[in-house]
């Protein structure tokens, strides 16, 4: 049964991401509010239809195998990431004692999927996007792991199921307030959004996805949305108590928290500016990584106390 629940959660949230994405875009572009909601609801389906009828793009000597595999890998990683999140006490698709480490592996392999996507097109702009993403993705992944270890300390376990259960009395966001902020940066980076979109950004004419069209592009966009959903599920479970709530713990609380986080991240993606890559690297290694150390130390003190 957790299979079915996770799939429903994934499908519903992906549609929600697509709708809220086009709504945010319309609001920022200050479209007349007459048909705002209807347009936003229809826009994702229109994009799907357009993608399906458009022909596949070709480049000279692409790495065909990896070009086809990269979107599938990205999507599969999003699925695995969502599968470690418990929907109710003890109910998760993957219920292993080391699911936090598995989530870390998902983060790492995501960097590889995005890199491969940009590399295998054999075109300059996608390749630049791939390089930039590899340079940014690795340090962000590092700091997210420190933050996640901070959530594993009070649970005394590396299992996400136990981490959620340990937040019965107090949520982890109160135990380490800095942690959620740092972890949200990872969400922007994993789903290639806004201030951390160094892979698929407009300044590279679409970056790693600049040379793909048709069904391959659709898969890639779907995977980006699915990864945002998986991230939102993980962030709500690690910091906001997951399925726990004031009354009747259950998947609805998880879904509610995910919707809030998704809205927050989509809004941040559309409204925050991006630093130049070199400056962002400096900020990552000299400011954010030490902050993550600080956060881990603080979480450790709280866990002991």
């Amino acid at each position: 049964m957790p299979w079915l629940g996770t799939l429903v959660l994934l499908g519903g949230s992906v549609v929600f991401v697509a709708v809220i994405d086009s709504l945010a875009f319309a609001l920022i572009a200050q479209r007349p509010p007459v048909n705002l909601m209807r347009d936003a609801l229809l826009a994702p389906w229109r994009a799907v239809a357009v993608s399906l009828v458009r022909q596949q793009n070709r480049t000279e000597h692409p790495d065909r195998l990896n070009w086809a595999l990269a979107p599938a890998l990205y999507l599969a990683l999003a699925g695995i990431g969502l599968a470690v999140v418990p929907l109710a006490p003890g109910v998760a698709v993957i219920d292993a004692p080391t699911t936090v480490v598995l989530w870390g592996a998902v983060e790492t392999l995501t960097v590889i999927a995005v890199f491969l996507h940009g590399w295998s097109a054999n075109a300059p702009l996608p390749l630049i996007g791939a390089y930039r993403y590899a340079a940014m993705g690795l340090p962000i992944m590092l700091l997210s792991m420190f933050v996640l270890i901070g959530t594993a300390l009070p649970a005394q376990s590396l299992s996400v199921v136990d981490i959620v259960a340990s937040q019965h009395d107090v949520w982890n966001v109160l135990r380490q307030p800095l942690g959620l902020f740092l972890f949200l940066l990872l969400g922007l980076s994993l789903s290639l959004r806004g201030p951390f979109d160094y892979a698929d950004s407009a300044d590279l004419a679409g970056g790693t996805a600049g040379e793909v069209s048709g069904a391959a592009r659709l898969t890639w966009q779907l995977a980006r949305h699915a990864m945002l959903v998986a991230f939102a599920a993980m962030a709500s479970s690690a910091f906001l108590g997951g399925y726990l709530g004031p009354v009747r713990a259950g998947p609805w609380w998880l879904a509610l928290k995910m919707l809030v986080l998704i809205t927050l991240l989509v809004g941040a993606g559309h409204s925050l500016a991006r630093l130049p890559p070199s400056r962002m690297l400096t900020v990552l290694w000299t400011v954010l990584l030490p902050l993550a150390f600080l956060d881990l130390a603080q979480a450790g003190v709280v866990a002991l106390w």
Binding site: A96, P97, T98, V101, L102, G104, A105, T108, L109, V111, I112, F115, Y131, A134, L138, M141, L158
Partner: peptide, 21 residues
Amino acid sequence: APYLGVATIFMMGVEMMVMAL
């Protein structure tokens, strides 16, 4: 060996990304 197995995948993912660069 649940920890060692997943940690190997995790670590080697980073290493091979750097290797490719």
